[in-house]
Amino acid sequence: GLPGAGRAAPDITRLKPNTYEEITTYNNYYEFGTGKEDPAENAGAMQTDPWTVEIGGLVERPGAYGMDDILKGAPIEDRIYRFRCVEAWSMVIPWNGFQLSHLLDRVGVQPGAKYVAFETAVLPDVMPGVKRNVLEWPYREGLRLDEAMNPLTLLATGIYDKPIPNQNGAPLRLVVPWKYGFKSIKSIVRITLTDSQPQTSWNMSNPGEYGFYSNVNPEVDHPRWSQATERRIGGGFFAKREETQMFNGYGEEVADLYAGMDLKKFY
């Protein structure tokens, strides 16, 4: 049950989720290596219990929140979302999680806050990828506050009713289904409310290719990949490419957030 979320997307009921195996063996998580299979192979040693998330910046109740505390009273739901990678492949993933707005309401957002910044853990002992400078670590992402408060925006804790595997971003990851997958930051250790737009990793690394918003948009091309169509993972050899939908099909829920903005400029 997802109030106000999947209901409006007309094809949500006929979305067939990818298999658990597909979702958990084909991952981009560069801290564990740049190959798609690397995270599943290398992430096993990461300890996610205990886990602490530093919540700070413009909040009423800053502090180090343990996972138990974060999950206390969190209304965990099932959400079947399309997941669209900037590399032009996609999946459908049955997440378990709760709305980010729930956590933000609990810690109390101060009136001056306009953005939310996130950081992934950096654990050199168990993350072979952070020894190389493919990106500047820690991995950083950010949302505008209204995007963060949107009912679609999820903090995921599980997949297929199982605890989320390490390679998918255990124990707590963001899911923003109308944005390219790299916005959905994994293994979050820090959440900071700010009054200015935070830096994001891919934008820092290559601003011409990755913007702050990174909404799924078939009309705005990535310099290296056309975003007009996508390949659904799991269809095997002869699965037909599918047309990519504006906002990944979640326009009814989120288009208002960008009313009046030139999405070619704010890509």
Binding site: E21, Y26, K36, W89, R231, I233, G234, F237
Partner: peptide
């Protein structure tokens, strides 16, 4: 290998 499902979940790539 790809046709028999031994190249992971995205054999084409």
């Amino acid at each position: 290998l790809g046709l028999t499902g031994r190249l992971g979940v995205d054999p084409v790539k």
